[in-house]
């Protein structure tokens, strides 16, 4: 199995704080990998580094063998990496459908094609019925789903999902988990930040655990939850399995 994405010794220092500290991991193509860790562990910062939104202080990000650290976010997206924002960022004065169309314009200039793709993405995340709504009419869980639809419209090879299932009711979350499985069967690779361990256990083939910016464990979900270092990091922050 080849690695689609390789993160090598990635480090990001903010003033007075190293948010990501010498982290290395790789993502196998066609799998779901979960990135977990207590609040402030550096997960979102990791996403920002991979997606080109932040420049690393040190280290490398290789996607299909190509180095990404100097690429701007739009170029990273066009190479095939799409991300969602943990704090949702809908285009406020565009409809739900129009929001979902934007990503399609990274590979087509045809409006009809973009609209078809947007309908498909909304269908995937369960927002098909709200295509004509304004984004401020959506509930927060729906806005998270819109983030995901926007990202899917770019036709990514790798999808970075930052807590998209937060706030979903269990039945809804189960439906989204089904969608993730289907996307992966279709060849997509996913890196998922998720706090609900039950979901992580269910979908991830590999789990990477961050704590205070450093990687403290990596392995199968069942191994990782049994790891004393992981338990300890979570107990300090209030473990909610």
């Amino acid at each position: 199995m080849t690695a689609l994405l390789e993160v090598k010794n990635l480090t990001k220092a903010f003033v007075g704080l190293v948010a990501v500290n010498d982290v290395s991991f790789s993502l196998q193509a066609g799998r779901i990998t979960a990135l977990i860790g207590p609040n402030g562990a550096g997960k979102t910062t990791c996403f920002n580094l991979v997606a080109g939104a932040l420049r690393p202080t040190a280290g490398q990000v290789l996607f299909e063998g190509r180095s990404l650290e100097r690429e701007p976010p739009e170029a990273v997206c066009r190479m095939g990496i799409a991300r969602t924002f943990q704090i949702v960022r809908p285009m406020k004065d565009m409809s739900v459908l129009e929001n979902a169309m934007v990503g399609a314009f990274s590979w087509t200039t045809n409006v009809r094609e973009a609209r078809d793709k947007a309908h498909e993405s909304l269908e995937n995340v369960g927002l098909a019925g709200k295509a004509n709504a304004r984004t401020d009419q959506l509930t927060l869980p729906d806005r998270k789903m819109l983030e995901m639809a926007k990202a899917l419209s770019t036709r990514p090879k790798l999808l970075l999902l930052d807590e998209v299932m937060a706030g979903l009711r269990p039945t809804e979350a189960a439906r989204v988990v089904g969608v993730l499985h289907r996307l992966v069967e279709g060849g997509l690779t996913i890196l998922l930040v998720e706090h609900v361990m039950r979901i992580v256990m269910e979908v991830a083939s590999t789990v990477v655990v961050l704590h205070h910016g450093a990687k403290i464990a990596e392995g199968k979900p069942s191994e990782v939850v049994a790891d004393p270092a992981v338990l300890e990091s979570y107990l300090g922050a209030g473990f909610h399995a």
């Binding site: 997606a51 939104a53 701007p72 976010p73 739009e74 997206c77 066009r78 799409a82 991300r83 924002f85 960022r89 809908p90 285009m91 406020k92 004065d93 565009m94 129009e98 934007v102 990503g103 314009f105 990274s106 590979w107 926007k150 990202a151 419209s153 770019t154």
Partner: peptide, 14 residues
Amino acid sequence: RAMRDDDEAARALG
């Protein structure tokens, strides 16, 4: 319109 509403989010979408 996407870049008008949110430049950073638009860039993340390519």
